[in-house]
Design a protein around this nucleic acid. Structure first.
Lengths: 377, 377
DNA sequence: GGGGCGCCTGAATCGGCAG
DNA sequence: TCTGCCGATTCAGGCGCCC
């Protein structure tokens, strides 16, 4: 038997004597390729399926340049029904290949994740957590019509309710300031030198995932030597991280250009013991506290009076965290600048509230909230 | 007609002449009660439906004390199918009652939110955002078998794809350090004095939501005077916050004990009485000035030369307010876009005229006309 | 060489009104 | 209901150029 191959005995395999091709990329359709793999043979699955974005026309930035949106054919589905059929088909094919104690990770956005999650449950996967990937640097909402879409959702599920799955609780806790790892992860987008480029300097894959994300997943839910399957291999982040962390991978991908990029990338990946790369992103500076939080948390009441140090200017606090000077409404910073006739102002260190007759800087209130925030991680 | 009631004319109402009972709690089954309300009559819906938690057995803390888990009868569903049927029924009933431009908020956890989201999409609601409520003080995972479940998910959706919904973008930004509000919100659990207790000091409702959460929702997606419907009213957080923020509420709840707690609580809630503190901060939209007015008022002469900032492009002003670049004629916007090879352009902030040898933006001329317009009333 | 400034970009269901 | 047109709208971070 060739090195790198692994024979798995399984009566339920669709292909007698099917072989798991370790640390390779299978070219072809995801579902067909899955059906040729041996049953109950992989320890972990990471899947980044098409999101079915259903984008309309073009989106322009405020400077009138164009957003390079995902418009690839592989993200086109005729209807929700068709997307559901596709989802159930690949989930069922994946489930067959999973060992009884294996777990599955799927990533998505609000466009598709509810359909994926519901299908998972219908197929008797058992959801363990939903995880929120909070992006430190998301694309803004240019039109000001919605909240900045600043996160994606991962579902972590075991093959069934009785699975005794791998969860490296102590390792995660040790790497997380000795507190339990939470379900919300702050990780930057994949940009800069990590982002694969083609010969002409354009991004090689439209939705390349950051290695830090895959790193945390593999460290949390697999052991060294485990086999990690990625049925939508794309630019090969799963393979590169698996190699670095001493796990085996099996990738499936139908686009030859993506495969070529992934092969090159994985060949360059060096197994490292340096856990620093995967340590949770550290706080660079003090977290930003919106003034609205002060009102939400009732540290100040709507209508409260803010004054400057000399008591020359008086502004009133509104319910939404803006303040009002005369009949002009704006943020504590904007109104502070206006009051002083300056181009800018830090409202936190300019405005005071009345604390039993004594003027106190609102920065004191920010300090209270920051203290709580630090406790929350 | 009694004060506090509002008659809404609607041919599609199931009950002719149905009346919306403002600022009251309707006792009874959610779906039946919804069907008695007038169609297209509410501006915003907040729904906190049963979570279908499926907890097997009891959960013990490390010190062997018992966790007071949600095990109420209203959270028992025999199967996913039954939960889906229930979900679709209340969503459809809610949709009928929503105005065309109304939006819906639903909160849930991984146990139920995927089913709710998929059902929403099936019923042609249009998802605007999914929002993550990050809890600063979540309950730890006592068994160390999963990630700390530190968030819940909200879905924000409009009645349909074409809805022109309310989103107080400027107000949210002013209260958020002058940056866009993101889709991940850090808000503490409802604890301490805000948490309602019964006569014996036990929590009055198992899943009471924090007022800060409802506050942000109402400030983001409703206007003062709007009608907010909560079909699973529970301890009445929606009603208390609506009253404080000058919105009307309609609650539906079948548990008499919850209703009693909610009534008492809402009676004690003090509205923000100063309307100025409530009106959403908006950017005043400036009146539209046609470029032709600039020529009509002889601020520029026909034949005058317009240039871009670098002087690379030169266009000539025509009598009708169009301009000419080479032999191409069009609006200041179209020609500006053409000159730059961009899909669009705001001509007012691109073209300059010659003011005694110095290039000046034509936006200055618009400002003059706007000033006159304002003076004229 | 270093600091500062400007450019580029990221899974996006991104307008409203008049005619 | 559809078309055309005006004109409003962005945050964090990496990288490269320039002084």
């Amino acid at each position: 038997m060739s090195p790198g191959l692994k024979r798995v005995e399984s009566r339920s395999s669709l292909v007698a004597g099917a072989v798991l091709p370790l640390d390779t990329i299978i070219e072809g359709d995801c579902i067909a390729a899955l059906q040729r793999l041996p049953a109950a043979s992989v320890d972990l699955v990471f899947a980044d399926p098409p999101y079915n974005l259903q984008l309309g026309g073009d989106l322009q930035r405020p400077d009138n340049s164009m957003v390079d949106a995902v418009d690839d054919d592989w993200d086109k589905f005729a209807s929700l029904r068709e997307y559901d059929d596709f989802t159930r088909a690949w989930l069922a094919a994946v489930k067959r290949v999973m060992k009884p104690d294996a777990t599955l990770w799927v990533i998505g956005s609000y466009h598709n994740i509810f359909r994926v999650g519901a299908s998972l449950q219908d197929l008797d996967f058992w959801i363990l957590n939903d995880i929120v990937w909070r992006k430190s640097n998301p694309m803004p909402n240019f039109r000001g019509k919605r909240f900045t879409n600043a996160h994606e959702t991962l579902i972590w599920a075991s093959r069934d309710q009785r699975s005794r799955y791998t969860f490296n609780y102590e390792a995660l806790k040790a790497g997380n300031e000795d507190v339990q790892m939470r379900s919300d992860w702050l990780i930057p987008l994949c940009t800069g030198s990590e982002r694969l480029k083609d010969d002409e300097g354009r991004k090689a894959h439209p939705t390349q995932k950051p290695e830090a994300l895959l790193g945390r997943i593999l460290l949390a839910a697999s052991k060294p030597g485990d086999v990690v399957l990625d049925p939508f291999f794309g630019s090969g982040t799963t393979g590169a991280v698996a190699k670095k962390l001493g796990r085996h991978f099996v990738g499936i991908e139908r686009d030859q250009a993506y495969i070529a990029h992934a092969r090159e990338r994985i060949a360059l990946a060096a197994p490292v013991d340096d856990a620093a790369m995967l340590a949770p992103a550290e706080k660079r500076s003090e977290p930003r506290i919106p003034f609205a939080n002060v009102i939400e948390r009732q540290l100040l009441q709507p209508g409260a009076i803010l004054t400057d140090a000399n008591g020359r200017h008086q502004a009133r606090v509104r319910v939404d965290g803006s303040i009002m000077l005369g009949d002009i409404v704006g943020s504590i910073h904007k109104i502070g600048a206006l009051a002083q006739g300056l181009p800018a102002c830090n409202g936190w260190t300019y405005w005071h509230y009345d604390d039993g007759g004594k003027p106190v800087l609102i920065d004191e209130l920010r300090a209270i909230l920051r203290k709580e925030l630090a406790a929350a991680g």
